[in-house]
């Protein structure tokens, strides 16, 4: 098979298929990660001390352990819990124990969302801390309730501060989605590896794959800077 023929009939179709799988992993993980990050970040900065300690522990664990290890725990480790339950309580609990058998896709999204959320919460928390208390006080002085003052005044300002950091984390996520390969997902990197080993064309396969990721990241960067521009406040040097 000629080189061009190989690209046209084997490599790019496989990578395109992988790209679609990657997108299906990245988008829900990013959305869930941001949502978890917002909840955890707000809880850590404003929650009761017990809640914020619990969330600190979550961040410590998910930021403090390798993502590969987390991923393997979700996919290979968790079903053991189901096996244990069945050994203890008989086959009657198998509907319950099946909950612990995550598909490769579900374990990838779970791992990425929880890990990403831990980092996102840090950006959100930092942004909330950076907002001067004065605007919140001014809102209270006008008769806003504390919840209104937070959601109407502090949160919009904090969201703008958090955006660059959160965007950065999403760009990381695009790249670490390649780890889904190790729990048997045929996403971009998984496809590349399959083709490369089958045809012994490592350099071309991985170079092309790198190009795909670069394109994804460029697209994300472009989207994020468009959002930053849209949300920028005229005249504010820190945000525009």
């Amino acid at each position: 098979m000629g080189t061009l023929e190989f690209y046209r009939t084997v490599l790019f179709p496989a990578l395109n298929k992988g790209l679609w799988v990657s997108i299906q992993i990245i988008v829900p993980s990013a959305v869930l990660g941001v949502a978890i990050g917002i909840l955890a970040g707000v809880g850590r900065s404003l929650g009761t001390s017990r809640l914020s300690r619990a969330l600190d522990a979550y961040v410590a664990v998910f930021r403090g352990t390798p993502l590969v290890v987390q991923l393997m725990m979700w996919y290979y480790g968790l079903p053991t819990v189901g096996v244990f339950l069945e050994s203890q309580f008989g086959p009657g609990v198998s509907p319950l124990s099946s909950l612990f058998r995550l598909s490769p896709y579900a374990s990838s999204v779970t791992a990425f969302a929880l890990c990403s959320g831990a980092y996102q919460s840090e950006y959100i928390r930092g942004a909330l801390l950076s907002i001067k208390k004065g605007q919140y006080m001014a809102a209270l002085s006008l008769g806003f309730t504390r919840a209104q003052a937070f959601w109407r005044i502090t949160a919009p300002a904090a969201a703008r501060r958090a955006l660059p950091g959160c965007g950065n984390e999403i760009i990381y996520l695009i790249k670490y989605s390649s780890l889904a390969m190790i729990v048997t997902m045929s996403e971009l990197t998984g496809q590349a590896k399959g083709i490369a080993t089958m045809y012994f064309r490592y350099l071309e396969c991985y170079l092309a794959t790198a190009g795909y990721y670069l394109a994804l990241v460029t697209l994300a960067t472009w989207l994020l800077s468009w959002m930053e521009r849209r949300l920028a406040i005229p005249g504010d040097p820190g945000l525009s």
Binding site: G134, Q135, A138, L140, S141, L142, T145, P156, A157
Partner: peptide, 24 residues
């Protein structure tokens, strides 16, 4: 009550040294 305090506060206007306008 906490709700009535909000009503109380809105009857009193406050001007701050550093303005505290809502930046956004």
């Amino acid at each position: 009550s906490r709700m009535n305090i909000c009503l109380f506060r809105r009857e009193i206007g406050m001007i701050f040294q550093d303005f505290n306008l809502f930046d956004h």
